[in-house]
């Protein structure tokens, strides 16, 4: 029978944070954040399908400073989840498990996702000539 008192994994409160564990929980957090991004995509498409007024309201929300901040976070989450996803696919093939490579690829994911986020936004602003 099930013993409800026994400790269940993941036992986070007694686990000292390390690069590997922090990057790992970041993968889950960005995944959850991206679900919210997907729901915003639904709202955006639905507003466009509904008509010009609904779309204009959606654009006001998205183009506000808060909307931009949220979408900046979504952009970072997407690139982080994507780049760290490559690490996961590598691990699934049994590659890159030694500590040195874990740290190098982890660092590349963090730097890469920040760089790609900034580049995307600079490109987007350049596209409308608002930079």
């Amino acid at each position: 029978m099930q013993n409800d008192a026994k400790p269940l994994s993941p036992h986070l409160q007694v686990y000292r944070p390390q690069v590997t564990s922090v990057l790992s929980i970041m993968h889950r957090l960005t995944g959850i954040v991206l679900v919210l991004a997907a729901m915003l995509l639904t709202y955006w498409l639905a507003a466009a399908a509904y008509g010009p007024d609904a779309f204009a309201r959606a654009q006001i929300v998205l183009e506000s400073w808060f909307g931009r901040l949220v979408m900046f976070g979504f952009t970072f989450s997407l690139f982080y989840h994507l780049l760290n996803g490559f690490r996961h696919l590598g691990w699934d093939m049994g590659k890159g498990f030694d500590l040195t490579r874990l740290r190098i690829t982890g660092g590349l994911v963090v730097i890469g996702s920040i760089a790609l986020t900034l580049l995307s936004w600079m490109w987007a602003y350049g596209h409308v000539g608002k930079l």
Partner: peptide, 13 residues
Amino acid sequence: LFAASSVFAVLKI
């Protein structure tokens, strides 16, 4: 629900 709404929106547009 969200997937169906999104697909329907794309098709309607």
